[in-house]
Amino acid sequence: MNKFSSISLAAVLAVLAAPAFADELNVVCSNEQDWCDLMASNFEAATGIDVAMVRKSTGETLAQVRAEAGNPKIDVWWGGTGDPHLIAAAEDLTEASGADTSALLPWAVNIAEISGGKTIGIHAGALGIAYNADILAEKGLKAPACWKDLADPAYKGEIQVANPNSSGTAYTELATLTQLFGEDEAFKLLAEIGANVNQYTKSGSAPSKAAARGETTISIGFMHDMVNLRKAGFPLEIVAPCEGTGYEVGGVSVIKGAKNPEAAKKWVDFVLTAEAQQAGLQVGVYNVPSNSGASLDPDSPDLSSIKLIDYDFATYGASDTRERLLARWEAEVKGAGGAVEE
């Protein structure tokens, strides 16, 4: 019995080798790992505040912020698509940082206004089409240039796109087409494209990765992901659709009830500066920084040369619009067939 006691006691004590809550800034980063690391070390060098950072995808971060509401372990959430940031703001999970937005581009300020200052735009990325040049040539298909080209029956089984029920990227596409063509016309087009889709993936970045490897011929997704893959050496060609395209705005938010609110505000101020944003060029960040003073990579998709729609974040980010569009997508696009494996 005595030995058993000591074993169980030792086990319990091992479990109690408990945590440290030192003064520091806890950041969740939803950008690329290298970009996260670089920003953290730059911030540490500039402010002397100790940064503890972990990288998680936006959906996972939002789920965690929800579960931790009331006693958050995260101070600030930086990066990732804007929608989850806006949802967090609407659910009152984040709080206004009061950062100065005067040097920012209009779309970044727009996000801040919609959310009451709770999230501020840090970068933008346009939606685009990519195709694998090798496979396209092998199949003897012509390259798509417009959204409407994708409805061509020649592409049957060649297009891959994410499912908007699980992916924010695909929802941006749905909302973009709705804004470009009007709702009825957009759903007709989506159903026609749907007849060519081989798979509705769960994750938004999966289609472009599949196109890069030749697992599908054409993908729809964010251009900066495509540039990334192209730079890695894949034979991926990127198309800015001729009718115009929508875009996402990445955000930065301070979590409500953060343990280190002062440091969190400093982080927000810091990541909005031109110097901090253009450092992304060193690690290959191809989306467009929100500070008008930040310089751009020659390879990154130049938003001024792309026909961008006037994306209505307030309407299409609202949950009732979202639910209505998704229900309609489920019935008219997914339900209308498509998703054919050859």
């Binding site: 959906g59 908007p164 699980s166 992916s167 924010g168 769960k202």
Partner: peptide, 8 residues
């Protein structure tokens, strides 16, 4: 995806 997807 019911937990982390676009529609939680």
């Amino acid at each position: 995806f019911a937990i982390v997807g676009a529609v939680a």
